[in-house]
């Protein structure tokens, strides 16, 4: 499978359309679902995903087989999403940093009766800036260094957004959990 993919990628480097379509078919569903986490309109999501693929094909020479192709492509798709959000005038930077660092930064313990879908629904209710960072961290699995690179924001901002997002998420889920309980 990996060997076959390497051959496809090599053909893509040469600009072979058939190979490009093969790669698209392999990854389009996964990438489309990633974009859907940031854009609710499926038509927009599809366009953004396809533009991301075109960007990937024009930069495919830069791909190094040290990483999996999927995560390389995912990064491009995520960047495409962020670029589009930026065009929509979304601002990621913040001016008011929290002065006191909260110690329980790593505390992501939630009640285990809460399902993944409930968490996703709660994330969708977060403030846009916090939402993006939480999604990049929790769902996409990027660390702060990667997030600050993707969003072009300082590490501190990424941490602050994530902390605020996580605290808000806890609040939201507490209510949901309590509502479900009673």
């Amino acid at each position: 499978m990996q060997k076959e993919q390497k051959t496809i990628i090599k053909s893509c480097v040469k600009g072979n359309e058939k190979a490009q379509m093969q790669l698209y078919n392999l990854y389009c569903d996964a990438m489309f679902n990633i974009v859907c986490r940031y854009f609710k309109n499926t038509e927009d999501a599809k366009d953004i995903m396809q533009d991301g693929f075109l960007k990937a094909f024009s930069n495919i020479k830069k791909y190094k087989s040290d990483y999996s192709f999927g995560s390389w492509l995912k990064r491009i798709i995520i960047n495409q999403c962020i670029d589009t959000l930026r065009k929509q005038k979304m601002e990621f930077t913040i001016i008011d940093y929290e002065k006191i660092e909260i110690i329980d930064d790593e505390n992501w313990s939630f009640n285990n009766s809460i399902s993944k879908e409930t968490i996703i629904t709660a994330i969708e209710q977060l403030n846009e800036k916090h939402q993006i960072v939480v999604k990049l961290y929790l769902i996409e699995g990027y660390d702060h260094a990667e997030i600050s690179q993707i969003l072009n924001i300082p590490l501190k901002t990424s941490r602050t957004h994530l902390r605020r997002g996580r605290l808000r998420l806890k609040e939201l889920l507490k209510t949901t959990y309590n509502e479900a309980r009673y």
Partner: peptide, 11 residues
């Protein structure tokens, strides 16, 4: 019971 939701999203 508590769960780390980061594990939940790894899958």
């Amino acid at each position: 019971m508590k769960q780390d939701i980061r594990d939940l999203f790894r899958k």
